[in-house]
């Protein structure tokens, strides 16, 4: 093999300038850089801590992170944290489950049937931009001041984005796969179950990310009326008293909830969408 390289070739002429080809193919390919996210958080918190201690951030603008943490620990020790978290999580779970499952169902029907599409797409488009918070009094009348109105608010809020994402995902399923199913004489139900739904799954899951974030946003709104306990109620109470430490402790809990939901979906995607290239 060694004499291959020693074959005849033009000797390098030292007078002709040679330049190495510049690499220009980098970027545009997301890589896993987990620690950067953590570093950004830590840096921001450290900055605020330093600012509040040094005095160039007044305690009226931002609470000191260590104080917020102290409030959080207090909340934990007194057991109040779980008293607030329990009802909130159940509202979130029930409301989002209702809204998302109804949304996926309607979205799939819109994707499959032209009449359903013609009838419901304009309706969904009309419902989507309504701020559901504005309807809270209506939901209270319809579903009662107790849990019913809270489930309804969160459910309606998650419903419309889920519908839009789902029928988009069904529309995007590779037509050639459906034609393949038909050419093998698969039944309509088999084509839906084995080709359309798995093919739409990536789009449905990425729609759920957005819908569930909206559900967390609406949790606070849902607890505006008739809620004694709940993270939202806790934040609203702290806000009305201008108790910034407690307000921030509540906000941090919501953020953590959001992170948790997003991580869960990422985990599900890794598990069931491993077939994607």
């Amino acid at each position: 093999m060694s004499d291959m390289t020693a074959g005849p070739r033009a000797p390098a002429d030292p007078d002709v300038p040679a330049m190495e080809v510049r690499f220009r193919g980098g970027g545009f390919a997301p890589e896993s850089r987990r620690w950067v996210g953590v570093a950004v958080f830590v840096a921001l918190i450290a900055l605020v801590e330093w600012g509040t201690r040094a005095g160039w951030i007044s305690p009226l603008t931002l609470p000191r992170p260590t104080d917020v943490f102290g409030t959080f620990v207090e909340l934990w020790n007194s057991g109040l944290l779980f008293k607030h978290l329990g009802p909130s999580l159940s509202r979130l779970a029930v409301g989002a489950a209702l809204g998302a499952s109804a949304g996926i169902l309607i979205g799939v029907l819109i994707g499959l049937f032209s009449y359903v599409r013609a009838g419901l797409v304009p309706l969904v488009a009309a419902l989507f931009p309504i701020p559901k918070i504005a309807l809270l009094p209506l939901f209270v009348i319809w579903f009662g001041i107790d849990e019913g109105s809270k489930y309804a608010l969160i459910g309606f809020g998650t419903f419309s984005p889920t519908v839009v994402a789902t029928y988009g995902a069904v529309d995007n399923v590779d037509r050639s796969l459906i034609r393949m199913g038909q050419s093998f004489g698969l039944s309509w139900l088999s084509i839906v179950r084995k080709i359309v739904l798995p093919g739409a799954m990536p789009g449905i899951l990425s729609g759920l990310r957005i819908s569930l974030a909206i559900a967390i946003i609406l949790l606070v709104a849902a607890e505006m009326l008739g809620a004694e306990y709940g993270i939202g109620a806790y934040i609203l109470q702290a806000g009305s008293l201008y108790d910034l430490e407690r307000l921030f402790a509540g906000v941090v809990i919501l953020s953590l909830l959001g992170l948790l939901v997003s991580a869960t979906i990422a985990q599900i995607e890794r598990r069931i969408l491993g077939w994607r290239t």
């Binding site: 050639s176 796969l177 034609r179 050419s183 093998f184 088999s190 084995k194 077939w275």
Partner: peptide, 28 residues
């Protein structure tokens, strides 16, 4: 299935294994 296609773009279900892709047309 008397009339059976082989497509230019293969038309395999990307979420099924080789075995699963063949089994798809038997299950029905």
């Amino acid at each position: 299935n008397p009339l059976t296609y082989v497509f230019q773009d293969f038309a395999l279900l990307p979420w099924r294994t080789v075995r699963g892709n063949v089994s798809l047309v038997l299950e029905d």
